[in-house]
Design a protein around this nucleic acid. Structure first.
Lengths: 253, 253
DNA sequence: TCCACTTTTCCGAAATTCGGAATTTCGTGT
DNA sequence: ACACGAAATTCCGAATTTCGGAAAAGTGGA
């Protein structure tokens, strides 16, 4: 529309802008009409946008913004949309077990806690949003590490480690063995390995829009929390993670 | 990095991706290093990105993602980040007056309520998230309309209007007069003009990142709510809007 | 099958980008 | 104030990419 938009990049942005307000996708001709661009141009632009991952083609007819744009948007908003979708899930889980729950992600080789939820009518949380937990000790760290690429794991394991408690696993072989197990069971457990006296479980949440994975975790004093059957916790947690993952698919308001 | 990224668009995306994870900005040479691109290329790309509004230059040294990207990100996430920042402000206001508060935006010529907050320990809300209110009757509608461009207002006033109550202003001159007043006072009031028996106040929240404006509103039964001094409500509301607007500047975690 | 519409392909002209190298500006220490 | 090294900006010919009208191919309904 504006004069500065009459450049290759400007046209690409006009298209992306149009797609951004149509989550269900638009067809080639609809995009051309909305952007006031020539059909052939839109067609070519869409293909280059697709080739860099900024746009995705749905059912051979509709186009939507692609993974690359979602990753950028997620970064820009600090994952606000995921935090948003996660709130009810965190609350549900917290109330179900009477323990603190939280959502975390990988950032610069450490765990960044994005949001937490304490069971209604209960004291304050042990984890504060922010970053800092290592990937080899806390449950969230373990699950995030286990689901990373092998090359990332290799690099990470070259870094030095600290034994936070007597239970902390610092030996590379031990950690690799646990990673294998976590990959199979889809659940990570941390019993007295990071914070003394604390037991926590974590499951992965897959964001299909960005390809990024997050960790959903429950967290409590071992004395109290270990009285709840382990299988029950795991099932509920996996269930919640699944639910959250699905709710991210079409970014339902 | 990838082979498909060796195209003009791919390079632009590499740069935007890099900037997305550095909210405080990066210098030209830092970007060049991070993206593994030649400095001259990054320099040129940044200029074209700036010319389309995708990137903004800070203090003559640092670059950050620009308005255009924020608008797109905001659209993609359905304003999740604003909703997120607004939550505490909404809650504070709601508790202060004991009335329902909400955040809304303009969408397709109607008001879309993004999130609501009822005072703690009180019944349910009158407004449900979703869309539908007209721009000439509800307080949120009025403020959003008043702050739109003149051409938008002209177009909008050509549409037909309905008198929801005996107080609804439907005459074009009346509406234009009120718009002028709202622009000056920065506050819109709706007393019994849309929902019968309801009094509401709305103020504008400016999102400097996107250039978009949102409406922050308080909402209550006229019988009860009108007992609170009008000046007090307006001051508090403007104050809250200001606070929210500032918290959007640097998207603090 | 025919028709109307949408999508894809073609292609020469025009615009944009690339990046090495030269030039200018900026920040600092003396 | 002056000099020096790093960062930013400008230059420019070669190479790549884009543009959009027009033709061809594909789609779906009557």
């Amino acid at each position: 529309m504006s004069d500065v938009d009459d450049t290759p990049l400007g046209r690409a942005f006009r298209i992306m802008e149009t797609l951004s307000s149509h989550p269900d996708g638009l067809t080639l001709s609809e995009i051309a009409a909305a952007t006031e661009l020539v059909v052939a141009t839109v067609h070519r632009q869409l293909n280059t946008l697709i080739s860099v991952g900024a746009v995705r083609k749905l059912n051979t007819k509709a186009f939507v913004l692609g993974e690359r744009m979602w990753v950028i948007a997620s970064q820009m908003t600090n994952g606000a949309d995921i935090t948003h979708s996660a709130a009810p899930v965190l609350k549900d889980l917290a109330d179900r077990f009477g323990e603190t729950t939280f959502l975390a992600r990988l950032a610069d080789s450490t765990v960044e806690v994005m949001s937490t939820c304490t069971p209604t009518a209960f004291g304050q949380s042990f984890v504060q949003p922010g970053r800092g937990m290592p990937l080899y000790a806390a449950a969230t760290g373990k699950i995030l590490l286990a689901l990373s690429t092998d090359s990332f794991i290799d690099d990470y394991l070259k870094l030095p480690r600290t034994a936070f408690t007597a239970n902390t696993k610092v030996d590379e072989d031990d950690i690799r063995a646990e990673i294998a197990q976590i990959r199979e069971r889809k659940i990570a457990i941390c019993n007295n390995e990071f914070d003394p006296g604390i037991l926590s479980y974590a499951a992965a949440v897959e964001d299909r829009r960005t390809g990024l994975t997050y960790a959903l975790a429950v967290f409590g004093l071992a004395d109290r929390f270990s009285s709840i059957d382990r299988g029950t916790v795991e099932t509920q947690l996996l269930n919640a993670a699944q639910r959250l993952s699905l709710s991210l698919r079409s970014n339902g308001k």
